[in-house]
Design a protein around this nucleic acid. Sequence first.
RNA 1: CGGGGUGUGGCGCAGCCUGGUAGCGCGCUCCGUUCGGGUCGGAGAGGCCCCCAGUUCGAAUCUGGGCACCCCGACCA
Length: 560
Amino acid sequence: MLARASQLFLTTLRDAPSDAEAVSHKLLVRGGFIRQLSAGIWTFLPLGWRVHQKIVQIIREEMNAIGGQEMLMPVLTPVELWEQTGRAEIAEIFHLEDRNGRRFILPMTHEETVTFHAKEIQSYKQLPQILYHFAVKGRDEPRPRGGLLRVREFIMKEAYSFDRDDEGLDISFRKHAGAYDRIFERCGVEVFQVQAESGMMGGKESMDYLAPSGSGENTLVTCERGDYAADLEIARGIPRAPEFPASLGAPAEVETPDVTTIEALAAFLGVDAAATSKAMPVVTSDGTVVLGLVRGDDRLEEAKLAAALGAAVRPATVDEIRAAFGAEPGSLGPISFSGPVLADEALREGQFVAGANRTGWHLRGVEAGRDFEPRFADIRESRDGDTCPNCGGRLRFQTAIEVGHIFKFGSKYSEPLGATFLDEDGKERPLVGGSYGIGPGRIMAALVEQRHDENGIVWPASVAPYHAHVVGLIGGEEIAASTASELAAHGFDVLLDDRVGRAGEKFADADLLGCPVRVTVGKKSLEDNAVDVRSRAAGDDTRVPTSNTVNWVVTWMEEQ
RNA sequence: CGGGGUGUGGCGCAGCCUGGUAGCGCGCUCCGUUCGGGUCGGAGAGGCCCCCAGUUCGAAUCUGGGCACCCCGACCA
């Protein structure tokens, strides 16, 4: 395939839009891959769509390889279907009406729709099934951001598996995990599989695929030795051991006037901040005030706390705190508090300082189990300095983009929607399902985040808009055109820069667009009957005889 | 939804405080020049200054009200 730059909708920009922050946002816009239409709503320009399509094709091939059957389900969806599963209430859903006032939604996923169709499955003999499609999703995000990182409309590959039982689902789940590994590998994007919260989708086993990047919404925690990876929200890092002061036989009150922060408390008492405790009162959805207690140098991880309590929580207000503790924030503690106390595991051992529930006073020598009876759970946010729960290695923290998610939803949708089949005994049973998503646009953004330099993008050959970028300079126009044709004839996607322009501008555009191989054809090398070839990643020219150009590129590509 | 910020040719910005014919750089068109890392010079085209209302002889500029977009947070399959 051969494209001529002189005829393409090529819209490179010298400057990035001033409001762009993320590298992927800047470079994809500058390179003319994408353009914004509205907040979180993006057009893929021809160049960007080529990349998107290449990613889509890789996904398609790997889905087909595990027996997936491609289909297409509609975007317009009658709201009644979602009312049956209770998901119509989700705030992120776009609602609209037709001319007769009939209500529709733009679905964020297609579980309801695919399960509606799965009702045609009647017998265990028709199972298992893997169905998938690439479809436009609508999500009324409260805050879109970062170019393609978080958008309100996007294409997602969604696959759905239907099995007769949990064992079958397990097999389907593992097939998808294998396919996902191959997809990300082929796309050239670095990804970690981590345990995930299932969030608003509900369900059981759930894995996220996180791609480390300079910008993103998740924090990926990995062990330096490579045997642990988790999302920060559930990461189980091991905190350093505190330096405890001498033990006391019983808690002792100490006046701490105007000391309301941990730093001030530790300094005032001359103790390690890790030998203090931090009281975080929260209120559950039923109105109970619960005291979350973490080590002084730790932060409470609300997601863990909510998971441990099995309920959504919010921070208590100052009035609620006064009513429940009889003291101001800054002097709160577990002793003499009548409500439930959920203490972090790190507080199991040793004696620490706690608020006295008396404004301006703390207690030294407080010991969990002796002085108060908490429930223990892991509720601290893992942080720099923690070690790996598996091997004791150091943990690393980096921002990441969620590029895929697989999870088991069981009969969560088949039961309310009545999608059942008959087993060998003639017994009616609900279909057991799984759901598997990948965002090609997010893979694209993650790739740019992971693979760029100061001049532009460095695409992997598998998803690059073109394999080779042939730059024709003055005096080299004809050889450039014939070289481009030859490369195209060998099956490469080739971009020929046949525009009238200076070398510098063409090189700058080539670097920005990021095709893996650049072939420069100009007078300088043609004097040696040669062209200059370079890989975008390595960045240095190799002079190759014109007669050998195609061979060189073929060989180079095979090495990739 | 809370906090902060920005709306002026395609992109990046100045002008606004102190009202008086709308400017700069890049890009674009044409001419010449240069020609392997965004040449140089000249001549041009292109703007309901986000919208509405008000104040004023006169509003990009002042006042009020909207809207849009960005960033931080909350939220997030």
